[in-house]
Design a protein around this nucleic acid. Structure first.
Lengths: 164, 164
DNA sequence: CGGTATCCACATGGATACTG
DNA sequence: CAGTATCCATGTGGATACCG
């Protein structure tokens, strides 16, 4: 068994990267405007013109990104219930699932001095701010990179996909 | 007070977006290769050639991204302690702070069928898988978009920055 | 090994005009 | 309002060659 050779580093990475969902996910939303559109949608933007004016994005690019995000199942395009001639883009459940990603990045940015908002997300029930997003152990302890290791999966993903 | 006019939607967004750290953060890592380089670094890649071979990225682009990420304080460039002539890129604490973002996106991708890894991140202490990353209330309850609202900040960011 | 330099194809982005 | 079409400048990305 070779010690810490160069290739072992690559190989273990390639091993771990096998079938990693990140590249595909990044292909869909790992891009400046997709991210900002997502933020807008999470904050309640709905109409084409709202996104355009709110983000300062070029119309053709916005059009392109919206289409891709609709195709990717993140956004849904439908007639505005309050005015059938207008169109709204709303988040699908899949799109809402990206909230932790966006919030985690925002918190990181705030922590490292990229600006800080005067408003803050809070639990509607008690009005208290949400927790800082982080990696947690099973019991809720916060974990850092050094606390982590890779384990083999016990459940077979192939079985799950076949069952669905 | 106007009802649900178009402009009120934009305005409330622009209000919330004021000084939002997200655009700056996105400028730094909201991009395909930056994300994948980050993933590589989190997984232990260190040398230029490892990133190049592991990610399949063009050398000039890799060079460009690494420089930007070093300039942005995410990566640190230093001589390899095991071979002074070689160079390693390692995560700074700031870079490690992006782990939740990467992991949240990976979990999202896995949940929505973009692939699933055979290995899994786990707590080194007990070997149990980490929790699914999500937005949590103060007491740890999981929150969805509908449970959330915006509140004004009680602490002034201006004071904090002045104090530092 | 860790880059830089160069070339080239193509995508991106902004501006603006136009359409239903 | 919600786009599409067009033009143009610049950036990105891949391939390859070269260098200390």
């Amino acid at each position: 068994m070779p010690a810490d050779t160069l290739t072992s580093g690559i190989d273990s990475f390639k091993q771990a990267a096998l079938s990693c969902p990140l590249p595909a996910a990044v292909e869909l939303i790992g891009e400046k405007w997709a991210f900002l559109i997502l933020r807008g949608a999470l904050n309640g933007l709905r109409h084409f013109e709202e996104f355009q004016a709110g983000l300062g994005i070029a119309r053709n690019i916005l059009s392109d990104r919206l289409s891709k995000m609709v195709a990717g199942g993140i956004l849904e395009r439908k007639p505005d219930p309050e005015d059938g001639r207008r169109v709204i883009y709303s988040l699908t459940p899949k799109g809402e699932g990206l909230l932790p990603v966006v919030l985690a990045l925002r918190q990181w940015g705030e922590e490292w001095g990229y600006g800080s908002m005067r408003v803050q997300l809070a639990d509607r029930r008690d009005g208290r701010p949400v927790r800082k997003i982080g990696v947690q152990a099973h019991d809720g302890r916060d974990l850092t990179l050094n606390d982590l290791t890779w384990i083999e999966r016990e459940d077979s993903a192939a079985l799950r996909t076949a069952a669905e």
